[in-house]
Amino acid sequence: MKYVSIDSVEQGQFLGKTIYSGGGTPLLSAGIQLTVYMINTLNRIGVTMLYIQDKAYEDIDTDDILSDATKQAVMREMNGAFEAIRSGKEWSPKNIGVSVGRILDDVMSNKELLVQLSDIRTAENAQYVHAMNVCLISTLIGINMGMNYSQLKDLAIGALLHDVGKNGQAQASIGDEPKDVKRHHTWRGYELLKNKREFSLLTAHIALQHHERVDGRGLPRGLTGDAIHLFAKIVAVANKYDNLINTLNDKGLLPHEACEELMAMSEQELDHETLVEFTRIISVYPNGTAVRLSTKETGVVVRQHRGLPGRPVVRIVRTNDDEFEITEVDLAKQMTVFIEAVMA
């Protein structure tokens, strides 16, 4: 399958990946034939990019670390918890803990894969997709740093719930939040989590500190360097990256652009050592991405190399009398060839 702009999708094409509702149920299932109505509806709910089936790339898999069953279960539990919080009702930390256990099981089974964030966001599911992505990235960074299972679970819970304090308020950028830091969503998140006996107090501090900056210019307390907990530094990197690539954002960046922007924040907004570990687990050019090589040939990324995220395998397809002529360029071996541009 290929990852393409919704503007280039045509009636009759087949959807490559399932799109989920905010509650975790399939909105449109993979394999469904798209109609004009479906395409217009996806446009209306904020979808800008889609995975589409293509005969020349039918073997391409996005190598998702989390299973569909895990994604659905996590989104369902988060939706229930966040709806309860918005209504001022009690919510179940136990169910969130079970969801995090499922995430950890999937991550531990697939920890050699590079992260390719392939779930399609809509206005309804964006909050939950973001939380899962931040949790996934944070957990893999933690594994790279040699954390044990107990530490990983605390990190994963805090990452999944890092924005819990936003519930019950209008979604606003940090600059638009109240000047009283005690009303900032990080403080509200801390207050919601600190008395949950099922969670370590570390999870509350992740919610509190994930917008701090290592140079001391962050919120809510302006902490610097080692005063910021390592878990919060990790979640800060994951949170910033996922926000940068958010396809619902008019300024949403491509993965390689977001990675470059993150590295420019080293030792200012973000912790350098954490960024180094991040670059080791993220796919710079995810499978299904159309690219132009320095040879001026265009193709699609089909496979990744662990340890060489910027040097994937690119498939070039030429048609000749209704037959496909396929060439694969392994950039890990052909070092004089590089990706010149990503084709939106």
Score class of each variant (00 low, 15 high):
115 V>E: 06
133 N>L: 02
220 P>M: 03
285 Y>S: 01
169 Q>N: 04
53 Q>C: 13
257 E>D: 13
182 K>S: 12
162 H>F: 08
310 G>Q: 07
171 Q>L: 11
342 V>Y: 03
137 I>D: 12
141 I>S: 02
312 P>Y: 07
295 T>D: 12
106 D>M: 11
39 I>E: 01
245 I>K: 13
158 G>W: 08
166 K>G: 08
157 I>H: 05
177 E>D: 11
67 S>G: 00
182 K>N: 12
278 F>V: 08
62 T>F: 00
242 D>V: 04
89 K>M: 07
278 F>A: 03
173 S>H: 12
28 L>Q: 02
128 Y>Q: 06
221 R>F: 13
166 K>L: 07
286 P>K: 12
220 P>L: 05
182 K>H: 13
329 V>K: 12
321 D>E: 11
186 T>L: 00
66 L>F: 10
57 Y>T: 01
153 K>D: 11
55 K>T: 07
132 M>Y: 09
244 L>N: 10
56 A>S: 12
191 E>V: 00
279 T>G: 04
209 Q>C: 04
154 D>F: 06
333 K>A: 14
334 Q>E: 14
65 I>H: 00
180 D>M: 07
58 E>Y: 10
11 Q>L: 05
204 A>M: 12
197 R>L: 07
239 N>W: 07
329 V>A: 10
206 I>V: 15
89 K>E: 09
268 Q>Y: 07
200 S>V: 10
292 R>Q: 01
204 A>W: 09
122 T>A: 02
24 G>R: 02
280 R>G: 12
185 H>K: 06
258 A>D: 03
277 E>V: 07
5 S>I: 04
268 Q>C: 10
13 Q>I: 00
82 F>W: 13
161 L>D: 09
140 L>P: 00
